[in-house]
Deep mutational scan, measured.
Amino acid sequence: GMDVRRLKVNELREELQRRGLDTRGLKAELAERLQAALSGPSSG
């Protein structure tokens, strides 16, 4: 899988935006949010 901790802030935001998620917050928050999205149930 993707290691969200290795991504830069702008990369985290890009991935979040692609999934329609909130791109605001600290890098740690963005990484946590993206990780949750990646490990969560895949819809679609």
Rank of each mutant, 00 (worst) to 15 (best):
Q17G: 11
P41S: 13
G40N: 13
R6H: 09
L12N: 00
G40Y: 10
D3N: 13
Q17K: 15
T23W: 08
A28R: 13
L34Q: 01
A37K: 03
L16A: 02
Q35I: 15
G1P: 14
E29N: 05
L16V: 00
S39K: 12
T23I: 08
E29Q: 10
M2D: 06
G40W: 10
A37F: 14
S42A: 12
E15N: 04
L12K: 00
S39P: 05
L34F: 02
R13Q: 05
L21I: 05
Q17N: 10
D3T: 08
V9Q: 04
R24S: 14
E15P: 00
N10C: 15
G44T: 12
E14Q: 14
E14G: 07
E29A: 09
L34A: 00
R18I: 07
V4I: 11
R18V: 05
G20C: 08
R6P: 04
E29D: 08
L21D: 02
A28C: 10
R6E: 07
L26G: 15
V9Y: 15
A28Q: 10
R33G: 00
E15L: 11
R24E: 09
V9T: 08
V4E: 01
V4L: 08
N10K: 15
Q35D: 05
G1S: 13
M2L: 14
R6S: 10
Q35R: 14
G25P: 00
S43M: 12
T23D: 09
R13S: 02
Q35Y: 13
S43L: 13
L16W: 02
L34P: 00
E32F: 10
R18D: 03
K27S: 05
V4W: 08
A36W: 08
M2G: 06
R19A: 03
N10T: 12
L7C: 07
G25L: 02
E29M: 07
D3S: 09
G40M: 12
V9H: 05
V4G: 03
L30D: 00
E32V: 09
G25T: 02
E14F: 14
S42P: 13
L26V: 13
R18H: 05
L26P: 14
V4R: 04
V9W: 10
L38T: 04
L21A: 04
E11N: 04
E29T: 08
G20Q: 04
G25Q: 01
D22T: 05
P41Q: 14
G20A: 03
L26Q: 14
S42Q: 13
R24F: 06
R18M: 06
L34S: 00
R33M: 02
S43A: 13
L12Q: 00
